[in-house]
Simulated scan of single mutants.
Amino acid sequence: MTQTAPSKKTASAAKAAAPAGGSRSRGRVGASQPASEAEVERLTQSLKVKEDEAPWTSEELRAVGKYLREEIESYEREIERAEEELANFIRSSSDGGGEDQADAGAKTFERDHEIALANNSRDMLRQTERALEQLRAGTYGICENCGNPIGKGRLQVFPRATLCMTCKTKQERH
């Protein structure tokens, strides 16, 4: 699934959402209730940004929080769908008698594909939940490698980023 992160243009449309709040079903981190204005204001003051960047605004933080929560819900639905598909596949292929090798191979490929999709969605869900946790904790946007700010622009494009561009480039070279 490919979605773009919230931009400055969409920030004002996302005022109803917030980066912190209550809990969701199944013990997930996503929130359905907005944070208090005081909490959002505390976060705008505490989140680090690069020297050449303006501090986070409450509208930007609300947009990022809303985006992350929507992504969590989307990944949960994808995982549920993939698990249902896999269960249906297992039920329908339990007989297997009289299949030729091509049919068996196609079913194995389909099963492996569903497992890979579910695992990918689980990984993305964990990354998104972690980003939301960091946003709530006031540690969002800090490079996990060097401790410097990741950069507001990078986070607005890729809200799950955990490394600054310098550290990410070094990681990709190795």
Rank of each mutant, 00 (worst) to 15 (best):
A13Q: 04
G21F: 02
S23M: 08
G27C: 03
G27E: 03
V29P: 05
V29L: 12
S32E: 08
Q33A: 15
Q33Y: 05
E37L: 06
A38L: 13
E39M: 09
T44C: 13
Q45A: 11
Q45P: 04
E59K: 04
E60S: 00
G65S: 06
L68F: 05
R69T: 13
I72N: 04
E76H: 07
E76M: 03
E76A: 15
A82H: 06
E83I: 08
A87I: 13
S93F: 02
S94A: 10
D95F: 07
G96T: 08
G98L: 07
A102D: 10
K107Y: 12
E110G: 05
A116C: 05
L117F: 09
L117R: 14
A118S: 12
R122M: 07
M124R: 15
M124N: 15
T128M: 01
A131N: 01
L132E: 05
E133K: 14
Q134G: 07
L135T: 01
G138F: 08
T139I: 04
C143I: 03
G147R: 05
N148C: 09
L155R: 00
V157I: 10
F158C: 02
R160E: 09
A161W: 02
T162C: 06
C164A: 11
K168W: 06
K168G: 06
K170M: 12
Q171E: 13
